[in-house]
């Protein structure tokens, strides 16, 4: 079960969000990184950019393919994980920790209710 931590919320597009006050940290799930294979580039938005829920905010490229990243909640980008520029493989090796992608200031915290729990996300994967 540790592949999908209970304290995170999940989107059907395989992103996760971790809430800390009004700030959500966003990344991709274990399933997503495993499906993509070796991640070699993560294209991230500029700090300050605003996104609506489920709007595309970047792409993650693996050796084989390119995949869009969707912002699970509406908000403004506060920070991006600059370590991914040098070490995109962190998305594979540590998807929920060192491999986080952006931090967003939520504009509508109620949207978190639209996201899935760990148990529901795992049901989706079956």
């Amino acid at each position: 079960m540790s592949n999908y931590p209970d304290n995170l919320k999940y989107s059907k597009e395989h992103e996760w969000a971790k809430l800390d006050g009004k700030i959500a940290t966003i990344g991709i799930t274990h399933y997503a990184q495993d499906s993509l294979g070796d991640v070699v580039y993560v294209e991230m938005p500029a700090v300050g950019k605003e996104f609506k829920a489920m709007q595309e905010f970047g792409v993650v490229e693996s050796v084989k393919s390119v995949s869009s990243l969707y912002c699970p909640v509406s908000g403004k980008v506060l920070e991006r994980n600059e370590n991914l520029d040098k070490k995109p493989e962190l998305v594979n090796t540590s998807p929920y920790d060192a491999g986080w992608i952006i931090k967003v200031e939520l504009s509508d915290p109620s949207e978190l209710n639209n996201l899935l729990s760990s148990a529901d996300y795992q049901k989706l994967l079956k």
Binding site: G37, D38, V40, S62, V63, K64, N92
Partner: peptide
């Protein structure tokens, strides 16, 4: 097989 657990790289 597209890849094994070791990965494409």
């Amino acid at each position: 097989p597209v890849s094994y657990p070791s990965g494409i790289i």
